[in-house]
């Protein structure tokens, strides 16, 4: 394998990230998406089984799922924003594939942004049914 000729462009003066970084921020977007799905699903299922009945109205469940959605989407937005800050660390551009702590930092940030974007769209899709469907049927 040939080594890259140019030196790694990097920020001067900023504290370099540690050698060990947590993977949790990376997983945070998809985890919030999962949480939103499970919460929405469980709320609707319990409501229809215990309160609404087979043909009943979803009633307040639609509002509750709307609130979940707003909360989770803002959570994902925070995740994306923090990922973006990591990705912007220093002056290097993609692909962040140098074997250095700084590039790993940027890479993790960029991946967090991408997964966060995916989770954002997916959460919207999960919420979409209650916009159109009003009953437990």
């Amino acid at each position: 394998m040939t080594r890259r000729a140019q030196a790694e462009p990097d920020a001067q003066g900023k504290p370099t990230p540690g050698r060990r970084e947590s993977l949790w921020p990376l997983a945070m977007g998809p985890l919030l998406w999962v949480a939103h799905f499970l919460l929405s699903y469980a709320t609707a299922a319990v409501w229809c089984a215990k309160v609404g009945g087979e043909n009943g109205s979803l009633g307040g469940v639609r509002l509750v799922i709307g609130i979940y959605t707003a909360l989770i989407l803002s959570g994902i937005a925070v995740v994306i924003w923090r990922g973006l800050r990591k990705h912007r660390f220093g002056t290097a551009t993609v692909p962040h594939d140098f074997d250095t702590p700084a590039d790993r930092h940027r890479f993790l940030g960029f991946a967090t942004v991408l997964l966060g974007g995916l989770s954002f769209v997916a959460t919207l899709y999960v919420a979409l049914p209650v916009v159109f469907i009003e009953s437990c049927r």
Binding site: V121, Y125, L128, F132, I133
Partner: peptide
Amino acid sequence: PLVLGVLLAFGLSLLP
């Protein structure tokens, strides 16, 4: 995502 969103919304609007 926009195209899929529109298709999903249209499909869901048929469901009820």
